[in-house]
Each structure stands twice: as structure tokens, then as C-alpha cells.
Write a protein that binds this DNA or RNA. Structure first.
Length: 210
DNA sequence: TAGTAACA
DNA sequence: CCAT
């Protein structure tokens, strides 16, 4: 991993570490995530109540994983289709947390979001964690995302930022409950992933530590 | 309300 | 017509 001293605060409490990961570190993460997907296949989450599918596919690693279906959003310890426990969190991700979320209790969930061509993510808050004091770390791999972030209210003004492969974003403090999403992914903007697309990793602490 | 469409 |  390559330490990035330079960070930009794009919203209060939201730190953008550009080029935090060099190419080798990105390739290591991709290899680790491929291994996770081999154990815990990508699934298509659905909206609570309506059952409308997301355009991104997901999986998780770590003791807990985020899932969504007609029942609602939740964290659970097993894959929704295979019913098997989520794979262990790779050392590369634990190192990333140590480097960019120092002082926070260990991460319990890494949500893997796979954006194929045309996939988007509507504006939302990460608020299903019991521990809302720990930051959320977001890692961008592959094609550039046109990311949007606002404030804690849905109607707050938003700004956009292009998140490139290797960027790390930390949502903490006042931005921990900021609405955010991905307007679109710029096809062909990265050579990291065979076949293109984008992988986003979000590392979260879920339970309140003693 | 992590979805979309419709509308002012 | 486009953006919100």
C-alpha cells in the first residue's frame, strides 16, 4: 500500500484520499475480492417492499454482510443464497482500515458492490450500523465513478466528485450520515478490471464495541 | 426512499 | 429542451 498524505475534505468530515493505492495494491485487492466472490457469489439485492432489483450486484466478506430484499435492509452473518458464512476479510482490507481509519474498532463488514455497464446507485445514507461513530471507508477499483455527496438531509445541496481507481474515501464525523450515491460509471476509464466496470468496497464497523 | 417514474 |  502507498500512503497518501494529501487528502481533500469534499464535505465536512468526508476525506478523499486520491491515489491512496498504487497499481500493485489495487491488483492485490482485486485478486482478494475475486477469491471472495468465488466463495460468496454475487447476488442482486432487491428493494424492500417493492422487490425492485438494484442495478449493482453485491457480496460481502467479514463476520457480517449487508443484504436487502423485500423484508428490508439488514446485516446478517451468512450469504442470502448459499446460507454459508461470509468469507474472511482479507488482510489487505484490514491493513487498509488500519491505514485510513486508525483508532476505530475493527471492521466487521466489507460490502462489495460490482458496477457493470450502466449500473448506478441512488442517493442514500449508510445507517444500518449500530455503531455510527466509526467511519465508513470506500475504496474505488476500476472505472471512474461520478460520485455525489450531500448532507444528512436528503434535500441538502450535493456536489459531485469523480472517484478514480485507487481512491479511498472516508465518511466520518458530520458526513457519516451524509446522503451519497453514484450517478454513473465512465466506461473505459480504467484498465484495472478485465471487461471493464467498477468494484467498490465499503468497510464498516457494525456493532458497538465494548 | 441503496428503486423508478412522473411532474411542476 | 434540459435539469431538478
Amino acid at each position: 500500500m502507498q500512503a497518501s498524505d494529501h487528502s481533500l475534505e469534499i464535505a465536512p468530515g468526508c476525506l478523499w484520499f486520491r491515489d491512496a493505492l498504487d497499481r500493485a495494491a489495487q491488483e492485490q485487492l482485486v485478486a482478494d475480492i475475486r477469491a471472495v466472490i468465488a466463495q460468496a457469489p454475487l447476488f442482486t439485492p432487491r428493494m424492500p417492499r417493492t422487490g425492485k432489483p438494484f442495478s449493482v450486484r453485491m457480496t460481502n466478506c467479514g463476520p457480517l454482510g449487508w443484504v436487502s430484499d423485500e423484508t428490508g435492509y439488514r446485516y446478517q452473518s451468512f450469504h442470502p443464497d448459499t446460507r454459508r458464512p461470509w468469507p474472511d476479510m482479507p488482510a489487505s482490507l484490514l491493513a487498509l482500515w488500519a491505514a485510513h481509519a486508525a483508532g476505530a474498532p475493527p471492521p466487521e463488514a466489507c460490502l462489495v458492490n460490482v458496477y457493470d455497464a450502466g449500473a448506478r446507485m441512488g442517493l442514500h445514507q449508510d445507517r444500518d450500523e449500530d455503531d455510527l461513530t466509526a467511519p465508513v471507508l470506500s475504496v474505488s477499483l476500476g472505472d471512474t465513478a461520478v460520485f455525489r455527496i450531500g448532507g444528512a438531509a436528503r434535500t441538502d445541496p450535493t456536489r459531485s466528485a469523480r472517484l478514480s481507481s485507487g481512491d479511498v474515501l472516508r465518511l466520518g464525523g458530520a458526513s457519516r450520515l451524509a446522503f451519497h450515491g453514484v450517478d454513473r460509471v465512465i466506461a473505459g476509464s480504467s484498465s484495472l478490471l478485465d471487461g471493464g466496470g467498477r468494484i467498490n468496497l465499503t468497510l464498516r464497523r457494525v456493532t458497538v464495541s465494548a
